[in-house]
Amino acid sequence: MFAAPMIAILVSMAMLLVRAVKGPTVFDRILSVNSFGTKTVLLIAVLGFLTGRPAFLDLALVYALMNFISTIAVLKFTRFGSLAGKRLRPTEPQAADS
């Protein structure tokens, strides 16, 4: 019975994968990766119950955590690095406070 959510999550992962590959902007990709991470958390939680080892939840939390931190890191990078403007019209990041 746990199969239903698992399949749903896998299918939606596949759809996210398509979005991540297609882009078109870097932000779309970051969003897909972030969303993919959330799906992974859910998948692991469900899988943990499927195999009867709820200790897997530690793992799910680590994923949630790493997902958050790497998203922030990536964003910081797009803001200060020079790469983000590749497909966008790059404008100067505004000064410290607007």
């Binding site: 970051i30 972030n34 990041p93």
Partner: peptide, 24 residues
Amino acid sequence: VLMFLVITGPTSSHTLAKAAYRLG
């Protein structure tokens, strides 16, 4: 886990939207 997702989810999507907005 849910609480963590609820706190960080909006934070990261906001930051993402903001970064996109600021980069034009």
